[in-house]
Amino acid sequence: MVTTVKRLLLALVALGTLAACSSTAPLGSTPMASAPTGTTTPATTLVIGSQAYYSNEIIAELYAQALEAKGLTVSRQYQIGQRETYLPDLAAGKIDVMPEYSGNLLQYYDKSTTATSPADVTAALAAVLPSGLRPLTAAAATDQDSYNVTADFAQQYGLSSLADLTKAPGPIKVAANSEFEKRPYGPQGLKKFYGVEVTVVPVEDSGGPLTVKALKDGTVQAADIYSADPSIGANKFVTLSDPKNMILPQNVVPIVSSKVDASAAAIIESVNAKLDTASLVALNQRSVTEQATSAVIAKAWLTEAGLLG
């Protein structure tokens, strides 16, 4: 009898604990569930997303703090993986602002695109986005694929542009993600535009430390590293110029939902107006070398740019 009572009490306690657990969000916030769906409160909350890419999160944070400084309420939903993960949420209206990169986003929706100049790419983007989404004015800042060689290699063969690669002894090996092989600015593009033959050595860390190491070791002669990556400057790599616009431009472009009205859009665009590639590299640099958080980095930059006043 006593044990039965004890068990009953225990079960009650367990139930109570469960109930308490279920009333608090297990992960601290449930942005997907709490994101407003259609019926909005007077003070609209804008959900700002970011890719699982530190630099993208910094840009998202720039927008977030700029919007907050003007009295808007934002909810941060950062580090949401890759396009396959967040684009459906964006299209469904669960995310309102997403920093994107013009060329790759365009290619996601339209694999056969022929746009190459920054302006063409941004224009084409507006046409392919799902209904309800629109791109705002792109920033001058780009974070795009770039062919890099070591300073020694560049000096030895007098390399400054992609066309100069013909002067270096082949076969030239390029460390890059495996998809690079299929991209229009990959080996086929290099052959078509500049008459250079290269082979790809697939290293899947998106121009990260392993790719940098391969280039420094001389295992490869060139490496595909994103142009806003501080490692290019840190290792004195030489980025080969692309006079024929072979590489798809990747201007930072915010994709926003219809909940972002003209005034909110203007705030975001005021950030973009000051965001050039040098600023982006500097922002990334602080994250890489100081391990500073996106909030700290964004605040310092916005303050300096006079966007928090």
């Binding site: 460390a175 993600n177 495996s178 998809e179 092989e181 299929k182 050595v201 697939p202 290293v203 899947e204 860390d205 392993l210 391969a214």
Partner: peptide
């Protein structure tokens, strides 16, 4: 192995 360019079936997986 394909993560660091050494091939294997991971090559297709990553690509």
């Amino acid at each position: 192995a394909a993560y660091v360019g050494a091939g294997g079936l991971g090559r297709f997986l990553f690509l």
